[in-house]
Amino acid sequence: MMPDPFLQADKLGKGINLGNALEAPVEGQWGVTLQESYFKIIKEGGFDTVRVPIKWSSHAATEPPYTIEEAFAERIDWVIDQAQSQGLNVVINVHHYDELFDSPEAHKDRFIGIWRQIAGRYKDRPLSLYFEPLNEPHGNLSWRAWNDLLADTIAEIRMTDTRRTLIIGTSDWGGIRGLTSLSVPEEEKNAIVTFHYYDPYLYTHQGAEWGGPEVGTTGVTWPGPPDSQVTPADAAIKIDWVKRWFEDYHSLSPDKNPAGPEQVVRDFDKAAAWAKENDRPLWLGEFGAYSKSDMASRVKWTEFVRSEAEKRNIPWAYWEFAAGFGVYDRQLGNWRTELHKALIGGVTVTE
């Protein structure tokens, strides 16, 4: 019998991303190498699901049939085995396929060829394994191009695996705004639609070393307006939209503030309305605030976003386990208590 995607979504429950590991060009290059112990820690920490970002494109041939390196595939087998042995659901995706975002047409066949192999390798796995075709479509992979590629990729997967639940992301870097342009093939019923949430970006990504000058201002607190003014970095204030954002952040009341809780409520209402209209279950596949933010703000923001998702029966996966956004401290070997409680402590924030 075909799985009910709404039940499959419910089973995802409380999730966490195993970030900065297998989506690096080489595992460990970004500071995280997955350990067997992590899966037990995550399960005992109250989580139901692990999302595993994977850069398959660094481990597949560039010529047909685009063979995936066996040693790398076996490493993914091990990750799935470890998760499932702990009773965790597993979501595997294609992450950071940068060449596809730059040149979609040139990489279409390779992308589909990679999924042909993934589908064939895991077709007999329990349905607690989910496939997410692509993380955060963007760049030259426009929404139209993504809808076309998605349809072709789903058709390829379904030639091999007809029962696996698929998790479909939006264009526009996976954001809520991408929902309105997303087109999942009408005949594809066994699918969950995912979105990511990092708003306000100037708060959640403040001080991110990989970001541009717009995120160079630290000391941004949540919610706004702040108790005292934050002086934007010189390079940031030269960007018009950033300058306007800080003006509103400092001056507007909480209900209108770009870093206010009401903005989160409005965003999640839009997502829930889209899901109802399109009769599709949702999954909040990523959300988190970078460690350059003060912990009190991180806890408030994380708890509020988690709560708003749960109010709308949207399961979620926090970004991420144990790196720059991490809820777990690998050096000390314990959870960051307040942040962990904000996720799984059962505390509900009232509006």
Score class of each variant (00 low, 15 high):
Q8F: 04
A9T: 03
A9E: 06
L12C: 01
G13W: 04
K14C: 01
A21P: 05
V26H: 12
G28E: 00
T33V: 12
S37H: 03
F39H: 03
G45N: 08
R51S: 04
A60I: 00
T62F: 13
E69G: 02
E69I: 04
E69N: 14
E74I: 09
R75K: 15
A83E: 09
L88W: 08
Y97H: 12
Y97G: 02
L100H: 09
G113P: 01
I118F: 15
G120F: 12
R121S: 09
R125H: 09
S128D: 05
L134Q: 10
E136S: 02
G139T: 03
L141K: 04
L141N: 05
W143D: 10
W146Y: 12
L149M: 15
A151Q: 11
I154K: 05
I154H: 11
E156N: 10
R164E: 04
T165N: 01
G169Y: 04
T170S: 04
D172H: 12
R177K: 14
G178A: 02
L179Y: 10
L179A: 01
T180L: 14
S183A: 13
V184L: 13
V184G: 07
A191Q: 03
T194W: 02
T194D: 08
H196P: 01
Y198F: 15
D199C: 01
P200L: 10
L202P: 01
L202D: 04
Y203P: 07
G216Y: 08
W222D: 09
G224N: 14
P226V: 11
D227S: 10
Q229P: 00
V230I: 15
P232C: 06
K243T: 09
W245S: 01
S251Q: 12
S251G: 09
K256H: 05
A259C: 15
G260T: 03
D267E: 03
A271C: 10
D279N: 12
L282A: 14
E286T: 03
G288A: 04
A289C: 03
Y290H: 15
M295Q: 10
A296L: 04
A296V: 12
S297G: 08
E303N: 01
S307F: 13
A309L: 14
A309S: 12
Y318H: 10
W319V: 01
W319T: 07
W319S: 00
E320A: 00
F321K: 00
A323E: 05
R330L: 09
R330N: 13
R330M: 07
R330S: 10
N334Q: 14
R336I: 15
E338S: 13
A342T: 03
L343C: 07
L343K: 09
